[in-house]
Design a binder for these strands. Sequence first.
DNA 1: CTCCCGATTA
DNA 2: TAATCGGGAG
Length: 298
Amino acid sequence: MLLSNSPLPHQQSFKHLAGKNFKPTPKNSHPLSLMTTKSKSKSKKTLTPNPTECTNPIPDIEDFSPSETLKIRSSLLRWYDENHRKLPWRKETNHGDDDEGRAYAVWVSEVMLQQTRVQTVIGYFDRWMERWPTVQHLAAADLEEVNEMWAGLGYYRRARFLLEGAKAVVEGGNFPRTAAALRGVRGIGEYTAGAIASIAFNEAVPVVDGNVIRVITRLKAISANPKETATMKSIWNQNLHLLQDLEISTRPSWNWEQLCALQLALIALPAQFLISVVHFQSQVSAKKLRLQITPQRF
DNA sequence: CTCCCGATTA
DNA sequence: TAATCGGGAG
């Protein structure tokens, strides 16, 4: 779910949110990092001869402290309130009314956004929803017309999965309402399942896509390679922390809007926000910040 | 883990 | 020409 306000120079890349001078965090560049990507210590199990090694395989990733969580959360929510863009697949209506309709819209938009920039997707999305306003409508379609509507987007296998998924959902009788249940649907993986479950069905599940990886790694000055499964696991965990105990956040109480805003802010956060957030980054991880984060990087 | 899809860039 | 990007399938 890419909601950037800026035009997107490339497809399929979270770099487009970060400006021209964006460069991925170089591996092993963190001076404080004791062991990062290339440490081939595959002896993670049972063998812990070195006492410094046994604590954490990724030393420069630490959990958010409660106060960090509060700061980051309120900044994200403030950003969302002030800057978020209204997009056709995200209606600002009250959530009680038609969450399955919203889930379907999020589903369609997410699949399209996996491969195509926002500006292009909007047109495809509107036409798609006009033709097949609900899962039930889509489930009644056949592959030829789906491909026809999809023409120009590429990745036709994803369109086919979307159709097969819709058929399965309709045959199943009720829309899966949890991330775990959604995972069973064709074409819905960890990310899309989390996005639908949290945005449409109010489940507090973490969601990690390319943009979230970038946000979290910047906020925490993480130098570990996101391609490493251990790093990804940690980033998922970071996001989970941001969602936990929402009732102690700056907003009055837990509600759908808050969860939704947090997820969307994380997913959509443009580079501009990261500049404005630098001041509290310096409180969050001052040492790392000084060493790794420089304004022109954004 | 590897492979996949396509536009875009190096 | 080859690498890159990302979410999902196998």
